[in-house]
């Protein structure tokens, strides 16, 4: 009877329960992290970074035209100093060029930036290319 009504002992037991429950939940979270990292190790492979660049918006800006560009890197490698060039074509000739450099485009991630042109670009006349990058 004494053991069931002793407040100090029941407090100690409940704080024990809290500590162990926290420990158990956090162990599950850390175990989950390990599982995700092992999955990453299994699917990891050495490959060069790849980039897909597209124009997401063309709009007038201060007497010129701003082209918002998105660079997506679907590979498992990160690219640094990713240099994107946009050419406005008139027939086979390059009428105007603009370029931008992204510090990093992380693996399986995307970054956004903008290019400015004096003439109005259109999807038919704008050519976007990744000129080069370095390994981080």
């Amino acid at each position: 009877m004494g053991s069931t009504t002793d407040p100090a002992r029941s407090k100690g037991r409940s704080s024990h329960l809290v500590e162990w429950t926290t420990g158990l939940l956090c162990s599950l979270l850390v175990a989950g992290l390990f599982v995700m990292l092992v999955i990453d190790i299994v699917r990891h492979r050495q490959e060069p970074a790849r980039f897909e660049v597209s124009a997401t918006a063309i709009e007038p800006a201060g007497g010129r035209y701003r082209v918002t560009v998105a660079v997506h890197n679907p590979s498992l490698a990160t690219g640094a100093q990713v240099h994107v060039r946009g050419d406005l074509m008139r027939g086979d000739e390059v009428a105007e060029s603009a370029d931008v450099t992204f510090d990093y485009v992380a693996s399986e991630s995307a970054e956004k930036g903008a290019l400015f042109f004096a003439a109005q670009p259109s999807p038919g006349t704008l050519r976007l290319t990744v000129v080069g990058y370095t390994d981080p």
Binding site: V30, F34, L37, I41, H44, Y104, P136
Partner: peptide, 21 residues
């Protein structure tokens, strides 16, 4: 912080977890 993360392979990341703990 970003640069270390970009340079790390998954094995490095796993080792960082173990080292931290």
């Amino acid at each position: 912080m970003n640069l270390i993360a970009f340079k790390a392979t998954p094995v490095h990341t796993l080792l960082m977890v173990v080292t931290s703990i």
